[in-house]
Nucleic acid binder design. Sequence first.
DNA 1: AGCACA
Length: 249
Amino acid sequence: MSGEEAAGGGGGEANGVQPNVTIYINNLNEKIKLEELKKSLNAVFSQFGKILEVLAFKTLKHKGQAWVVFEDVASATKALKGMQDFPFYDKPMKIQYAKTKSDVVAKADGTFVPRERRKRNDEKPEKKQKREQHHDVSQAGGMNAYPGTYGAPPLSQLPFGAGPRVMMPEIIVPNSILFVQNLPHDTTAMVLQMFFCQYQGFKEVRTIETKPGIAFVEYGDEGQATAAMNALQGFKIKETPMLITYAKK
DNA sequence: AGCACA
């Protein structure tokens, strides 16, 4: 047990914090509204594994910070390493493991003890809390407060060979504008921009309110668009890989 | 900078 202090590499354990299913993020852009922030965090982190909950608060002491609770430590570790300094709303996010166990997790493994004074409910420590007695942790107050579980259509249902007709071979015509499909319906343009803006020649993302699940992303030229397409093809924002093609001219 | 559970 002699000095094993890594030379402040930038990991999470450098500050003596143990690996945790929950990551603690700070240096977040404080101008972003909480709801959007949580949604974006969810979008940006769900590539690393199942997310049980995203927490953020607007109190003075907790601005610019958030907690993302994963199902397992491996996902949290991947997220910590993969997204360290990722430019998120123009600020590099700083990620560590959370210092303590999240309530959702404690509730799931039965170690949860309300930290505040228990309410007028001291004669009933029975296991009848809610009618959610599922063993599915994700339901335990998780992130599923989303306006619906849409679930993008699987790749097999994409409008490619759609229709019972003879398949015409689609001629691929390169375009500086990309057409992105198969996105989670709550994906915002901001989140898409965070991914697509990392490639040369990025101009803008356009979404259409009446058409969730798709987006157009414009680059300076076809070559740049192609590079971005190759880099992000099949990237999963939630569970379903996004499909990128050239927009029709 | 700031580690919570609305």
